[in-house]
Design a binder for these strands. Sequence first.
RNA 1: GCAGACGUAUCGAAGCGGUCAUAACGGGGCGCACUCGAAAUGCGUUUGCCCUCCGGGGCACGAGGGUUCGAAUCCCUCCGUCUGCGCCA
Length: 426
Amino acid sequence: MIDIKFLRENPDAVKENIRKKFQDEKIELVDEVIKLDEERRATQQEADDLKALRNKISKEIGTLMQQGRKEEAEEKKKEVALDAEKLAALDEKQKELEEKTTKIMMVIPNIIDPTVPIGKDDSENVEIKRYGDPVVPDFEIPYHTEIMEKFNGIDIDAAGKVAGNGFYYLMGDIARLHSAVIAYARDFMIDRGFTYCVPPFMIRSNVVTGVMSFAEMDAMMYKIEGEDLYLIGTSEHSMIGKFIDTITPEEQLPLTLTSYSPCFRKEKGAHGIEERGVYRIHQFEKQEMIVVCKPEESKEWFDKLWQNTVDLFRSMDIPVRTIECCSGDLADLKVKSYDVEAWSPRQKKYFEVGSCSNLGDAQARRLKIRVKDKDGNKYFAHTLNNTVVAPPRMLIAFLENHLQADGSVTIPEVLRPYMGGKSVLE
RNA sequence: GCAGACGUAUCGAAGCGGUCAUAACGGGGCGCACUCGAAAUGCGUUUGCCCUCCGGGGCACGAGGGUUCGAAUCCCUCCGUCUGCGCCA
C-alpha cells in the first residue's frame, strides 16, 4: 500500500510503475483514486464544520440548562436537530469514500526498486548467482519419496487415510533429519544475532485480513470451525502481526527475529496438489526470519537476509542459486524479491526452497507499524521477510544431493550434532 | 468454561451525563535552576490520527454500535486483563 500523498503528488510515477508491472488495466485507478480522495477531503471538511457548530451549540445548551433557562435551551435544541440528518449523510458519505479509496489503494502496486528487472511473468525472472557446483552423479537419483521409503522414513498412504491427500508421516531417521534441520537452522540464525521466537500458530481474522487479500486468504487459510481463528500459513503472519498498530522507538531498531512454526496451507486453486511426495503439502514446518528496520537500511538488510539462506544451504553442501523476481512476477506489496533455489540432481534443475522479500513501507503502512525518532517524529518502518528453511522441501534437496551410489546418505558435519553424531544414514 | 472486578497519557490513578482531556493527584523521563558534583528541592516539559482558506477545526477514554442537544460517565455486542472456581498438557 503506497502513500496516498505520494500518489497525489506523483501520479505519473505511480502510473509508470503500474506499466512496468504489466498491469495496465490499473492505470485508470490512479486518476479515480485522486478524484475520490479530493471528494473525501471536501466531505470531511464540510462534516467537521457541522460538528464544530454542533459542539458549540451543545455547550451553550449546557450553560443555559445550568442557569435554568429551559425555554431558551429548547430553542437551541431545535437548531441542532436541523443539521442532524445532513451530518449523518455526510458522515456516511465520508465513510463510503474512505472505503472506496482504501480498496483501490490496496490494489495499486508498491513502487518497485529501480534494480528490479522488467518482465511479464516468472519466465522472465533473472538468475543472479550460483553457489556450489550443480553436480549430476553418474548413477540415477530416485524420486525423493523412494529414497525416504528405503529408510522407512515416510508413510504417505497411512497419512492419506488419516488426514487425506497432502499429508505425510515422517518416520525414524528421516523424521529426525527433519527436526535436525529445523534445530540447526534455528541455532544458525541465533548465531547471526536474530532473536528466536515461537509465535501463535493460529491468528484472528483481523490479522489475516491485515496481511493478505481476501482471495489469498480463501486460497490458503484454514479456518477453525466456530471460532474467529485461522491456522497460520507461515509464521510471518503471526510475527508481523505482533507489530500491528505499534510505535517502536528508533533506537530499538532493527528488530531481527527468527521464528519457528508449522504452516498450514489449503493450496487451493491454480496448482492444486499436483506435485507428489513432500514438495507441496497442507502442513509443513518452517524456520522464518523477519526484519523491521529504518527505511534507509532495508536494502542492506535485504541482501543480508537472502545471504543467510544461501549460507545455510551451503553449510550443508547443497548447491543453490538466487533468482530475482521480475517486475511482472513481483507481488504488489513488494519492492524487490529473490527466490533461493536448491539444485535437484534428479531433475537437473533448480527448484524453489525460499523466498526473500523487501516490502518497503507498504506492509507497515497497511498495518500501522511505526517508528518514533529521538525528536518524536513518526514514520513507517520497512519490513522484510525470508525463509530460513522449510524442512520437507529442503529434505528433497538434501536427500538428492547427499545420496551415494550405494544407497546411503551422508550427513554434513554441521548436522551431525543434531543427529546423535551420525555421519551417514544407511 | 463459569462467576465477579476492571480497561483513561510513559506508569499508577481520579473522574460516573455539560464547568473533565495538550486529562486532577502521584510516580517516571527530559530540560532548566541551586551544587565542585550528586542527592534533595524548585520551575518547566512529556498522546496519537485526519482535514485546513495555516486563522483554525474534527476524531480518539480497550474496539464497535445505541440512547441524548451533549457520553469517559447510561445501554448492547465483542476483545483483553485480574481474582476465585472448574478443567487440562
